[in-house]
Computed example of a mutant assay.
Amino acid sequence: MSIDRLPLFCDPTLAERIERAEAQLVTASSEAARARRADAAGFVIPVSGGVASFTDEDSPFNKVAGLGFAGVPQTTVLDEVERAFAACGAPVQVELANLADPAIGVLLTERGYRLVSFENVLGRSLTGQPERVTPPGIQVRRIADGELDAWLDVVVEAFMHPDTEGLPQHEEFPREAIERAERDFVAAQGVACYFALVDGVIAGGASMRMAEGVAQFGAATLPAYRRRGVQTALLSARVADAAAAGCDIAVVTTQPGSKSQQNVQRRGFDLLYTRAILVKQP
């Protein structure tokens, strides 16, 4: 059998670096939210190498991220985290990588956490100068000054109409919460935003955040322009930009079995690991 390339192998060391970058992203977004509100509401609590964050009501950044690679959390720390979320009237949602310490899953289950869903983390090694692939009629560019609101409009609108292929998302967010979260995410240091245009019309948007050599990608396409190569063009542009900036790996998070997962795998991304989503109600 002819093999053009070896799949990217993810060991616990690489998973820890990716999860650390994710925890940093959540922390930066939470801090941006507090700066936007100009108050001390919300919290970020360190938890065994990860963070527990509450940003805003209904925010996708209300979660425990990056947990599992710095030992099993102490019960007193989990007590503090659960009290903090309960005081906000919110459940505790833990995103736990399957390469993390297995004892943590046992501990959370014993404390009443329930498995509700999964998400996949895919990655691609960045070497050399990756080719930029742009299907006919599609243009990709970074957003210009003054275009953030237009970028938010397209990304939020696309997010509100998710693809129905693959495992469904386990939670839904109000439009206002998504817009606030995206605005806070962009305000976090090191985020680049992109437009994709089809025949001159804005059809999708994407983001890239770089930390510790990891380029974290997010993207969304308006329903009317899906299956036309928009994601291919956005992926290609960001892969090239991330490699040029010195990153050695790009990562994407998708719903298992989704069209997004299929798209990124076609562009050379490999399934690295899965996160289990465990929730404890207040």
Rank of each mutant, 00 (worst) to 15 (best):
R34G: 01
A211P: 01
Q129Y: 09
E57R: 15
T109Y: 11
M160N: 10
R266A: 12
Q74D: 15
P256I: 04
A250D: 04
G190Y: 00
P174K: 03
M210E: 15
T75W: 02
T253P: 00
Q189L: 05
G213T: 07
L234K: 00
S53N: 12
A38D: 14
A245G: 01
F54N: 10
F185C: 03
A177T: 05
A28H: 02
R37Q: 11
V26R: 03
A243M: 02
Q262S: 04
E31Y: 01
S30T: 14
Q265S: 04
V133I: 15
I143G: 09
A97Q: 02
D4H: 10
G200W: 08
R124T: 14
A244H: 06
P102Q: 02
V252R: 05
P135K: 06
A84V: 05
R37F: 13
A244G: 11
G166T: 11
D56P: 10
Q231V: 06
A237I: 01
L278E: 10
A219H: 04
S29C: 10
V64T: 06
L197M: 08
F185K: 11
A86F: 07
G190H: 00
L234A: 02
F173T: 08
L197D: 08
A144H: 11
C247Y: 05
L8M: 11
A158I: 14
C10V: 15
A28D: 12
F54L: 12
M1I: 11
V154G: 05
A38P: 02
T55K: 01
E176N: 09
C193T: 07
P91E: 00
P102D: 07
T253W: 07
S260A: 12
A52C: 01
G105P: 10
C247S: 07
R37M: 10
A150F: 00
E110D: 15
H170P: 06
D163N: 14
L67C: 03
T274S: 13
R141H: 03
A224F: 05
Q93T: 13
E22P: 05
V186R: 00
A196S: 09
L25M: 09
